[in-house]
């Protein structure tokens, strides 16, 4: 049945409807409805404890919501666990760097590709899978500027490069939606600037939709097309950088969040 009156715009790549998660009495995320369009770069900001990371867990499937739905490409994926959502095209990074420390940088990225493209239960041989995934991994490392460190152990990389490695792993999976949880956390100003440039480049070259949680407001205003503001688990504002800057409620939330 074709609707006679199609008033809505194109299907958002990701949509959340009334998404909520409670931990006992604590309502970490409550009634969040977002719509992120393809190729958009969306930032989610908010004071500490606003529920940003919980929201990421809900979108990526690491946590099950206690209310609401997650729609990806128009399909309800609420019931899918994290691995299944990843295979559908949602890749993510973590606020606290999460890599495979005692594997090489290349292997970190290669395994990310292998887990996405499949044939993981090949017990013997499997040279073709290994080579194909290695090729894609090297491409991703080049994109992130880590190709000259491919053979080092991931644990020996400096913190900034480990953050980039995480992005390389996610980007190598060629997702439709990339979730970045505080990619510049703990970085020096120079590394932050470099990371911002890299994220912009990755978004452009891979035609990615990105949702970004970030504390650094300069990074947010610099990168984001649109910004969503969370406060005590609720969405209190959404708009362009200029709109958010001018929003009185956001200012109150941030000033209130400081004491």
């Amino acid at each position: 049945m074709t609707p006679l009156l199609e008033t809505r715009g194109p299907t958002p790549l990701l949509e959340t409807r009334g998404l909520g998660r409670a931990f006992g009495a604590l309502q970490a995320v409550a009634g969040v409805s977002l719509a992120v369009q393809p190729m958009e770069l969306r930032a989610v900001i908010g004071p500490n404890g606003a529920g940003k990371t919980t929201l990421f867990h809900l979108i990526s499937g690491l946590l099950a919501p206690t209310a609401g739905h997650v729609l990806f490409r128009g399909d309800d994926v609420t019931a899918l666990a994290a691995p299944a959502r990843c295979r559908r095209g949602i890749s993510r990074t973590f606020q606290i760097t999460s890599i495979f420390p005692e594997l090489s940088v290349l292997e970190n990225v290669r395994i990310a590709v292998q887990l996405k493209i499949g044939d993981n239960f090949r017990l013997l041989g499997g040279r073709a899978v290994l080579e194909a995934s290695e090729q894609r991994a090297r491409d991703s490392l080049r994109l992130l500027g880590l190709d000259d460190r491919a053979d080092e152990l991931a644990s020996t990389l400096p913190h900034g490069d480990q953050r980039l490695l995480e992005i390389a792993m996610a980007a190598a999976q060629e997702p439709a939606l990339l979730l970045l949880d505080e990619p510049t956390q703990g970085l020096s100003p120079e590394d932050t600037a470099a990371t911002v440039a890299v994220i912009r480049q990755v978004a452009r070259e891979r035609k990615l939709t990105i949702i970004l949680v970030e504390h650094d407001m300069d990074v947010v205003f610099d990168l984001a097309d649109r910004i969503s503001v969370l406060h005590f688990g609720q969405l209190i504002a959404e708009g362009t950088a200029a709109e958010i800057r001018a929003n009185a409620e956001v200012q109150k939330a941030y000033l209130g969040g400081l004491d």
């Binding site: 990526s60 690491l62 994290a82 691995p83 990843c86 295979r87 890749s91 993510r92 973590f94 999460s98 890599i99 495979f100 420390p101 005692e102 594997l103 292997e107 290669r110 395994i111 990310a112 292998q114 887990l115 996405k116 044939d119 993981n120 239960f121 090949r122 017990l123 013997l124 041989g125 499997g126 899978v129 290994l130 995934s133 792993m169 999976q173």
Partner: peptide, 26 residues
């Protein structure tokens, strides 16, 4: 041969970081 196969490589990733493994799609 098993530990060098795609399966064996996946095992080592599980050893290193199971949560990351899960979030990478398996």
């Amino acid at each position: 041969a098993v530990v060098r196969s795609p399966f064996g490589r996946a095992l080592q990733a599980i050893r290193e970081n199971e949560r990351r493994f899960t979030s990478l799609g398996r």
